[in-house]
Design a protein around this nucleic acid. Structure first.
Lengths: 327, 327
DNA sequence: ATCCATTATTGTGAATCGCAATGAAGCACC
DNA sequence: GGTGCTTCATTGCGATTCACAATAATGGAT
């Protein structure tokens, strides 16, 4: 059948367990063969192997059929338990039912996403998955480690240099806008590059976008008149709404804040590289039904179009999950 | 690995279960290979098969080694339980310890054996196996069926035409003797054929020996003067001890009765075929430790020399158990 | 002794196995 | 970004095992 394992007692092949069960039940090698879908000679050979491995004749031929020995009777219970356990192993499925699930999902995101993405996620989850709790955590240097360890389930945003072993899916593209006071004395429906250089600005010193903005300014050797720097978005709408300062932001957060606070949104005159907001997760969880549900939810809520990830050797280094597209 | 069973979900090969366990424990295909005594490529192939059969990657490569997926974590407990059950199956032994055993043994025997064999068996059993109970049952036409079904464990005596599926072991040979009153008026130290024909006799109309005796008489056309027929041995000693009647018996029972009741034992002048007292048991119980113990006991108590059983096609129809000789 | 149904054995073409050799991948280091 | 190391995945191939048709052996009935 197979080479004897060098390190441990030979364990019974499941087919021999099935044979044991079938022969005990039917008392006939011929009937057991039919039951197991094999020929009678094959089953006779299996019986010989079973006898050798259990060191007992197990079944003795008689006019009444094959009768079990005391050892067969002693072993059949354990054999059937082993079979049942193997069947259970083969059949075990773990589905995820949002309507009944009780678990916590940790989502890494920038604090900007607290405004743009989290409210939609939360509203949806509260409606369809009442037992689910969402925890928002910061995107940072240890986000990849948190995704791998399972401390975080998914990351939303833009991570420029993710290790192997992670999947990513594009959600929506981002370009840049300027926010201005709706009653700004000098800025009406559009802003020129000249305006942009002249006016005073407020900067947010955090998040992915900040690094891209700073890079573009340096690249184009533009020195802005930065009247104020904020560590986050919290006070930004109040500042822009009561001063003549301009703020330059990724479109999504910009339009969202403008909407809530009655600010003016203008296309940014400065050419700044856009980027794609994506969701990221570790390959360990790729097939996990719970993780699939969460990612499907985010895709449903935020996905506009898909952009292929980076490639090497014909296979994605950071793979785009095909199955998510068919969900 | 092996053809997919046609009738049922494929169950995991125990080697794959061992791999699952080893990989979960070590986090390394290379280390798992060492543990399982296979090469690394072999184990990589096994892992591929495990992944296919469980429909999940199970372990994802990372700098920390192979990390389990949620499905692997969900299945490992059941996999380990299945492994444990298989090990238990491989290791299960059923010994028989006479000093502690509590069970009943049914021994088929003629009522003559109640006198010749049972007392020795009982004395021994009471000394070394206090929890064992002996039940003596009649040897008869259904003795083979009782041996096969387990209603009887062993039969002691002479069964002339036993079916297949039974073992037998010779215990001791039997020839014939005559019993006479120690104060018999005419019979002193020897009995002639003439004496035998002239004297009145008492016959026991039961047991194996009776048929042999009757056959011999008919074959030699001898008509005995039968003054009394008894259904069994019960009253025999009293009759022979108080009359001049002769009794013709197998030697063992004859000498035993003579010993107890002070009767005279004489070699039978009539040539009557001897026979061998054997113990018989069904092949189902051949390897059963309890049955082996009982048979060993009987051999120890009664065995004098061994006579081979009948043969056909080079193999005993009623097999002589070699292993019993080495016990 | 013959016959029947069932189990055991044999010979063989087909399938699968384990592993050496090597490619691919993940990461540390420069 | 390139290089090197360790580990996992893949390929090709000789060796081993498999299932089964054909048939022998066996247990019992007649």
């Amino acid at each position: 059948m197979k080479h004897r394992d060098r390190t441990e007692t030979n364990l019974l092949d499941p087919r021999l367990l099935r044979l044991f069960d079938a022969l005990f039940t039917t008392g006939s090698v011929t009937k057991a063969a039919e039951k197991l879908g094999q020929s009678q000679p094959t089953i006779s050979i299996w019986l010989a192997r079973l006898r050798a491995e259990l060191d007992d004749p197990l079944f003795i031929r008689s006019a009444k059929g094959m009768l079990p020995t005391p050892r067969a009777e002693a072993l059949i219970g354990t054999a059937r338990q082993a079979l049942e356990m193997l069947r259970r192993l083969a059949e075990l499925r773990t589905d995820f039912d949002p309507t009944t699930a009780k678990r916590r999902f940790a989502i890494c995101m920038t604090d900007g996403s607290h405004v743009t993405l989290l409210p939609s996620i939360l509203a949806h989850v509260r409606r369809v998955a009442p037992g689910v709790r969402i925890e928002a955590t910061q995107i940072g240097a240890d986000t990849p480690r948190m995704l791998q360890s399972g401390e975080a389930d998914v990351a939303l945003g833009y991570i420029s240099d993710l290790d192997a072993g992670h999947f990513q899916q594009a959600l929506f593209p981002q370009d840049w806008v300027c926010l201005a006071n709706a009653k700004h004395a000098r800025i009406r429906d559009r802003i020129t590059a000249k305006d942009f250089r002249r006016e005073a600005h407020v900067l947010i010193r955090s998040g992915t976008g900040h690094q891209l903005l700073a890079g573009a300014l340096q690249e184009q050797q533009i020195v802005l008149d930065v009247a104020l720097e904020l560590p986050g978005f919290l006070g930004l709408p109040a500042i822009v709404g009561t001063t003549d300062l301009l703020a330059t932001l990724p479109r999504h957060i910009g339009e969202t804040l403008a909407h809530y606070y009655g600010l003016r949104v203008l296309n940014c005159p400065l050419p700044i590289a856009g980027f794609t907001v994506k969701q990221y997760w570790h390959a360990r969880f790729h097939h996990d039904p719970a993780s699939q549900w969460l990612r499907g939810l985010c895709a449903e809520l935020f996905q506009q179009q898909e952009v292929r990830g980076l490639h090497r050797s014909g296979r994605p280094k950071k793979r785009v999950p095909r199955d998510l597209q068919s969900q």
